[in-house]
């Protein structure tokens, strides 16, 4: 399982992260948004039978905490 983070605007640096299984069905990945703005997370999963599943998660208006 892997994560790709992209800005909604082309041309910006993506963030890649591999997820580690912590418990059955529970995965954890270290991921840092490197820029303010609207992001798209692409979650790619390789199933036991080799098939790949990809899900898109829109994360709007990322801002520094605090």
């Amino acid at each position: 399982m892997s994560l790709e983070g992209h800005m909604t605007h082309a041309g910006m640096a993506p963030v890649m992260a591999a997820a580690v299984e912590r418990a059955p069905g529970i995965y954890e990945a270290e991921f840092a948004f490197t820029m303010r703005g609207d992001w798209v997370l692409l979650v790619s999963v390789t199933l036991p039978d080799g098939a790949r599943v990809e899900r898109r998660i829109d994360v709007a208006n990322v801002r520094p905490s605090g």
């Binding site: 909604t8 605007h9 910006m12 820029m35 303010r36 703005g37 709007a60 208006n61």
Partner: peptide, 12 residues
């Protein structure tokens, strides 16, 4: 200013 790659929606 820090650039924000975003839509100008009224989010936030």
């Amino acid at each position: 200013q820090p650039m924000e790659m975003r839509g100008t929606g009224l989010g936030g």
